[in-house]
Amino acid sequence: MIWKILLFLIIAFVSVAGIAFPIVEKPEFWYQFPLIPGLEENAKIIFFHVPTSWLTVIAFLMSTIYSIKYLRRKDLIDDAKAHTAAQLGMIFCILATVTGAVWAKFAWGSFWSWDPRQTSIFALLLIYGALFALRSAVEQEEKRATLASVYSIIAFVTVPFFIFIMPRIMKGLHPGSADDTHSGPVVDFKMNSNMLLIFYLSLIGFTILYYWMWQVGYKSMIYKDKLNKQF
């Protein structure tokens, strides 16, 4: 219960602060954000877009960890956990893609321009899609769990290419790219302490939210399976 209240407070504060706090050139009060050249007002998306894409990767990581656990112990509960993590990852992946595309319309002039980061998030979307397609193709429970686990591990080993290598060897527009002279790396230098605080609060809040949703999700999946077996 205490976690839920804390979560409510964090998310409420982050939503209000992230949207309403003004961006000024020389911040004087604690509620003012600094102006980042090249990003200006668009910088506020960092409080909502970055946590969603962070959770996309975290969910994928958890899905892979539970897939490995499933392959070791052959326990279907682990598979339910991996599956729920992948489902939530898909939701956050769509959110990150959409918020990113809307932001790109205002910052770069078009919704989609195949920036390396956009390519990466698109590939993650495809991986999640393929994972669900594979799951729906196999009827038998154990076989489905094994094949989905293997596929998600194989897909996971390609993720470092998208997240860490591609944006660095290809030219990009995204803040934080290798050749970004204006605003990157944003997190390290250009944000002042109050902006950083709200950014990290937002990350923590969204992560707790994800964890809670994940617990509810996998428990309901296990109960559904038990009920199906009874009748």
Binding site: T119, A123, L126, G129, I154, A155, T158, F161
Partner: peptide, 10 residues
């Protein structure tokens, strides 16, 4: 192709 494409994309 659905399963292979994301793996082969990089």
């Amino acid at each position: 192709p659905v399963l292979s494409f994301p793996i082969l994309l990089p």
